[in-house]
Design a protein around this nucleic acid. Structure first.
Lengths: 325, 325
DNA sequence: GATGACGATGACAACGTTGTCCAGTGATCG
DNA sequence: CGATCACTGGACAACGTTGTCATCGTCATC
């Protein structure tokens, strides 16, 4: 900036005025300054600006599990869109379901003085964010609730969704329904299993522990084999998330007779498979949007008590859940 | 920081020393300072740090077309991973194939003094980045080459891929092969069409302009109808990218007799469709990794002339391209 | 001709940090 | 006992901006 000032033969402050479109600069002077800016390729240092102004850095942080997962990339895109409407940039990071990494990313973003933080929790302890929240940085948790702190949270109705999946299968005559879910430490996995149980109870289907698998997606194929070999075997499946659904579909591809299936999370091409895969659909974009909107409402001054938004899910019957036992 | 100093009863500089693990602070003093930091929830302002140190902001910018597209989210993840290894955070933004937005994002990131920029070009003119490049900010273009500036570029072998797709279809007896591609202004679309032509020539298949569609993905279904209604009709298709492939698959789902198909870009579940979809596969992660590695090589001091890396593509025959006319 | 109003410009401090340099305080040594 | 030294701590400037206030012409007015 001082280079520009020197080249234009004015003071540094006048350059600042031109850059900020402030009034009170003679047209000729402004012209000279603009020419100098152009010639030197000057770009105002936003970091310094933020330091000086002290208010907003114009960024928000987004910590999720894995951007490459279409669920989270949809969420990311929606959040990005909202941020754009509010003139903010987005810092993203993937935690890979690692609590330490989640913490590291979140604190790093805070040290960069993001205006707010959207977090898909990997861990269950978020006390480390308490100082940030106390000092006024809004934090919104998505998809899973935080532990140790009270904060805005956007969830989906996992219980209702899983229950509905069971009831749907039961309506088509299934009595041996298996649940292939994620590791039990993950909130959504636990909730969906709870919903599965509830659905069994409501549909009058026996809940058989031998037909339940709780483990990382890598074990999905093995778990599938197990529940299909149970006695009596499972005739229908509820899969706990999009990754597991895909694994199961791949494992099922070779089998002559396939169990009925309802997957949690919708995914592209589900409707084009044979048979088309019925799912409990939830819109990742809706989650991202809701979380970001909530964040910006806080940034806009909303200081009501922390809210918990639970978005509905929707059973999309496509065929795979409609086959009888 | 001054609050911490006051609470600990030391000077602000001593706090700085503690924060930076500098030697020359008495253990008791350090302890007091750490306690104060803990109590106040102090977090060092990285913005101010960057300003002071003047060197690196520890961030890189990533401008792409749409994070929600699995191709780009895979690319993003890989770039993020490389950035992480180099201790950098990532600012992302989606341009939506809009040159103005691409420019806006890139310049915004530069104003934030990112250490480097990875850009998937939406437009064809990148002169606006010349000052940044000249002033030492490395920029790497991915998937499409830049216009107006010389810079590192990572591409895939679009021509070879499309040509191979044609030859594959020709080997299975097809003589009426259609190309459903993206808008001709997009580099990859143009290149793939060029490859398609070359493939036709090499395979001795007549290149028929009536079997070529160049348009946004929204027109894919209409274009498909057109080439299937041509006289004589297309018996095989090459689709220009993953979005178009999906649209075409959906449009084909209703039809009794399907043309053979080879899609550009691999996509999840392609192998589980009926018939499994043959594709020209390219690894988006590989693109992102290569681009990021190149960027960090530049940041590491590599000042050789701009490089152009062309990653190979791989035909993955799965069935949809092997059916005869 | 003095006064005031106004438009254009600049000097200076401050944002939160850290690098540089200097000052005190004991301890050690000759 | 004085000089030196190691160690600890602080004052100050600077990074690139902008907000505040002061300065300096110029011109119209009385």
């Amino acid at each position: 900036m001082s280079d520009v000032a020197r080249l234009a033969g004015v003071s540094i402050k006048t350059v600042s005025r031109v850059v900020n479109d402030e009034p009170g600069v003679h047209t000729d002077t402004a012209e000279r300054v603009l020419a100098a800016i152009e010639r030197l390729g000057f770009r105002r240092n936003i970091g310094a600006l933020n330091l000086r102004r002290g208010s907003s850095t114009g960024t928000i942080g987004l910590v999720l599990e894995d951007v490459a997962n279409p669920f989270y990339s949809g969420l990311t895109r929606a959040a990005e869109e909202v941020a754009r409407r509010h003139g903010r940039q987005v810092l993203t990071g993937s935690s890979d379901e690692d609590a330490g990494r989640e913490r590291e990313l979140s604190l790093e973003f805070c040290a960069r003085r993001v205006d707010g933080l959207v977090v898909v929790p990997a861990g269950r302890r978020h006390g480390y964010l308490a100082p940030e929240i106390a000092s006024g940085t809004p934090v919104v948790f998505v998809d899973r609730p935080p532990g140790e702190v009270e904060a805005d949270t956007v969830l989906v109705d996992n219980v209702a969704g899983a229950a509905e999946a069971v009831e749907h299968l039961a309506r088509h005559g299934h009595r041996r329904i298996a649940f292939l879910g994620d590791a039990p430490g993950i909130f959504t996995a636990a909730e969906r299993l709870r919903g599965f149980r509830e659905g069994c109870a409501r549909a009058g289907v026996e809940f058989d522990e031998r037909l339940v698998a709780r483990g990382p997606e890598e074990e999905a194929a093995a778990s599938l084999a197990r529940v299909l070999a149970a006695d009596p075997p499972a005739t229908a499946l509820v899969t706990g998330n999009n990754r597991i659904t895909v694994r199961v579909l791949r494992a099922l591809a070779g089998l002559p007779r396939r169990p009925a299936l309802v997957g949690f999370d919708d995914f592209e091409l589900a409707d084009l498979l044979d048979p088309p895969v019925s799912v409990v659909a939830l819109d990742p974009g809706e989650l991202g949007r809701a979380a970001a909107e909530l964040l910006f409402a806080r940034l806009g001054g909303d200081s009501s008590p922390p809210r918990r938004i639970v978005l509905p899910v929707r059973l999309v019957p496509r065929g795979s859940g409609e086959v009888g036992p």
